[in-house]
Design a binder for these strands. Structure first.
Length: 163
DNA sequence: GCCAACGTTGGC
DNA sequence: GCCAACGTTGGC
């Protein structure tokens, strides 16, 4: 099992939207590095920290799990979508995505400020200057640190399954 | 809304 | 294949 951090602007799609929907295709990713992670690295059952970017405050707010992979992101063909990509074609889709499932909204939000201040999180990619990759790998130890800090109610049982 | 830090594009 | 120009991200 692997661990990830996935960023979303809450004004576009928040953890509460995911809670309402249950599952969602992680569409709109137009960065090759992030796409490659979804395409080549993520596996069904992987756990992801849900991060609110461009928020007040920005930070980790919840937990999700990868439920499907290898899905074509159809917004790339939709001329009315802000994610439309004129260079992609249905024959050779450029953008693919995973589907994630809602697991939990943490009762405590772990803000970026705290992530930066607490040495427990000093190894995490998200606090690095200039880091804007919207899907990032997270080390298992760091994942556990985060889940403990936010007093996650569900992380333990999913970690047990993988052990 | 600003703007620094990145990533992508396209001319050459 | 370089790199300037442009576009985007995302904290502040």
């Amino acid at each position: 099992m692997q661990f990830w951090l996935m960023k979303s602007e809450p004004s576009a799609y928040s953890i509460h939207d995911l809670e309402k929907e249950g599952t969602t295709g992680w569409d709109g990713i137009r960065n090759y590095q992030a796409r490659n992670i979804m395409r080549d690295k993520m596996q069904i059952g992987d756990l992801a920290l849900f991060y609110h970017s461009n928020a007040r405050p920005p930070g980790i707010v919840g937990l999700a799990r990868v439920t499907k992979k290898g899905i074509v992101d159809h917004t790339q063909f939709d001329e009315n979508s802000k994610y439309f990509d004129p260079k992609s074609s249905p024959d050779a889709p450029r953008w693919e995505m995973v589907e994630i499932e809602y697991l939990e909204t943490f009762s405590k939000e772990l803000s970026l400020k705290t992530l930066k201040e607490n040495p427990l999180f000093e190894n995490m990619m998200v606090i690095r200057k200039g880091m804007r990759l919207s899907i990032q790998p997270v080390e298992k130890d760091d994942f556990i640190h985060v889940c403990k800090w936010v007093e996650s109610k569900l992380a333990d049982q999913y970690l047990e399954v993988s052990a």
